[in-house]
């Protein structure tokens, strides 16, 4: 078995395909090498090929409002990039740049379509794969909406459930699926919001009484050093005496 065969068999996009189909696929891919900083694809270009990374790593980038580079994600061995372009010819939504010397398997749309004509089971496999990913994403979105509502209400209890693994299939530590990464980012955001909230709560709760003792003494002495005060104090004592005599 060739290195390409193993890579395709283990990739998320093609796993589960019969060996015979994978063999046919191997014939269609071209092995390509990109050097550090070299672009695999540029934002806005027509997309006509997908890449499966064999060795190395890449970053997926777009431009922010100020025109600077905004890194959306990092991808490594086994991950597919630009798979949507196998079915449409929309311009690339983001650019992909090699972070180091990267070896990738390139599959052109024409070659892929040719193969689909020969092997309809490949098409079925793709539909299944996309459908599963769609379902997966929808569940995540649904969960994210549910959790967002809880966060708005200040209820963070689902975080504990998540950490003890009771949310079942939602594992954020799997790097190989994008939904998992989204989830991971989501949870980090919640952690940040929660920490800020706790910190703020702590600040208000520990409101401390601050009395400037020097000023307190000074003001007291100023008020009590007058003749009026001395007379008042004497008078108050007399009044008190008078009143207690009446009781």
């Amino acid at each position: 078995m060739s290195q390409e065969f193993i890579r395709l068999k283990n990739s998320f996009l093609f796993k589960g395909l019969p060996d015979a189909v994978l063999e046919a696929l191997v014939q269609k891919v071209i092995r390509r090498t990109f050097y550090e900083g070299e672009a695999l694809m540029r934002r806005g270009e027509d997309g006509d090929a997908l890449y499966i990374i064999d060795q190395g790593s890449v970053k997926i980038v777009t431009v922010d409002k100020e025109g600077g580079e905004l890194v959306l994600n990092h991808c490594g061995p086994g991950e597919a990039i630009g798979e949507m372009s196998l079915f449409d010819k929309e311009p690339r939504s983001a650019g992909v740049i090699a972070l180091e010397e990267t070896h990738a398997l390139e599959l052109k749309q024409d070659a892929f379509f040719e193969l689909l004509n020969q092997r309809p089971d490949l098409a079925l496999n793709f539909i299944r794969s996309f459908s599963a990913r769609l379902r997966f994403s929808s569940t995540y979105i649904q969960k994210a909406i549910e959790w967002s509502k809880k966060i708005a209400e200040g209820d963070y209890s689902f975080m504990e459930q998540f950490h003890t693994g009771q949310t079942g299939q939602f594992k954020a530590d799997t790097d190989d699926d994008k939904a998992g990464q989204l989830l991971s980012a989501f949870f980090n955001m919640v952690k940040g919001v929660r920490a800020r909230e706790e910190n703020l709560k702590l600040q208000v709760e520990t409101l401390t009484l601050q009395i400037d003792e020097v000023r307190r003494r000074q003001e007291f002495e100023e008020l009590t050093s007058t003749d009026f005060y001395a007379a008042l104090k004497e008078k108050a004592q007399a009044i008190r005496q008078q009143r207690s005599d009446k009781k």
Partner: peptide, 13 residues
């Protein structure tokens, strides 16, 4: 808090 401290002292006095 500060003003009340002085008032408390006066009341005691």
């Amino acid at each position: 808090f500060q003003g009340t401290a002085v008032t408390v002292d006066i009341a005691r006095s």
